[in-house]
Write a protein that binds this DNA or RNA. Structure first.
Lengths: 195, 195
DNA sequence: GTCTATATTGCGATAGAC
DNA sequence: GTCTATCGCAATATAGAC
């Protein structure tokens, strides 16, 4: 059974917008890849921008959903869990990181609110874990939690951001996201745990 | 004394392309911001794409230049130096990181070679430092150097990538790049140094 | 809901005067 | 080197038939 044209458009749009950015993709290209008529973009989404917003909304909701599932572990275990989760999300939503990256450095006007809310929920999750770790004495007391959040987010996420190019440097076999994230999380935890 | 139109175009183009991306900027917008006639873009650079390439070339050359100045220190000191350098480069070239980011996830066709060469030189620099640190016994022997490079690059660079959005989360006073990078480098070094 | 056909706008590039 | 004027094209959006 065929998908309806609305879903076809959404699914075709995800990789196109992710790889080329909003302006570089034309509605003709979107329609062709989806196998539907370009007029349907206006019909279903009110225009190209509406389609982009729909994609963005769908992509970012995954972050908050994933975060909300992690509950009631020690700070260290929550951080390990966050790493494992990042690998999973990246496998399931291979284009999410492009959108995060693009919206971080280049927020779509009128959508900052939505995007910011999802990102903020991830930020808050890490901030809580780190603050709690410091207070319990597990982590070094001289850490600045705000900065420590960014260090953790960076050591995990930069890897996924740069994958398109970095695969050119790494030996071909070296492509285990899971192995990377495990090592990265351990470097980080080793670095923040009190001596 | 007025700058010539070529320089004016280049300087106007740097923030515009960085913030909006190649496709979202029109030659009319570029010319207006530079205060010159739009026909001069074709005259000086052979077209909009030529102007973009000129910007990219200029921006990326900074990486290789900065890296080439660090010589003959211990692995640990080289890594600390890399961090300090990142702060300096970011101050001097506030748009460089946007271009790195954009070219990493979205390489301009025909320029991968140039871009890749500059990025590769930074990658090689860190890889050498880490490999040497492992061999000398300063760093943990179970580290994978390829991955450890990405962890270091991530913990430093992600901060700069996300600054436009992250400033919305951080308390307003918290904006010291230098303090961030110092803490981040120490977390990393603590994490990789052999116990 | 989906199509064709088209209106309208803005794009990048260039010819040619100065 | 710099300008004006314009060409040709591709963009998004929409009106209206089916």
């Amino acid at each position: 059974m065929e998908k309806d044209s609305r879903s076809r458009l959404l699914e075709a749009a995800i990789p196109l917008f992710a790889e080329k950015g909003f302006s570089a993709v034309s509605i003709r290209e979107l329609a062709e890849k989806a196998g539907v008529n370009s007029a349907l973009i206006s019909y279903h989404f009110g225009g190209k921008e509406g389609l982009y917003n729909a994609v963005l909304d769908f992509q970012f909701s995954r972050i908050t959903i994933a975060i909300s599932k992690i509950q009631g572990l020690s700070p260290i275990e929550r951080i390990r869990h966050y790493g494992k989760n990042a690998v999973l999300i990246h496998q399931q939503c291979p284009y999410l990181m492009r959108y995060i990256q693009r919206e971080m450095s280049n927020p779509s006007i009128g959508l900052e609110t939505v995007v910011r809310r999802h990102i903020a929920s991830a930020y808050q999750f890490l901030h809580d874990a780190i603050t709690e770790g410091i207070e319990s004495g597990a982590f070094r007391a001289d850490l600045d939690p705000d900065y420590a959040v960014l260090s953790l987010a960076g050591i995990i996420n930069f890897y996924f951001i740069t994958q398109p190019l970095v695969n050119a440097f790494l030996p071909p076999a070296k492509k285990s996201d899971q192995v990377y994230v495990m090592q990265a999380v351990e470097i980080y935890l080793n670095g923040v745990i009190g001596k």
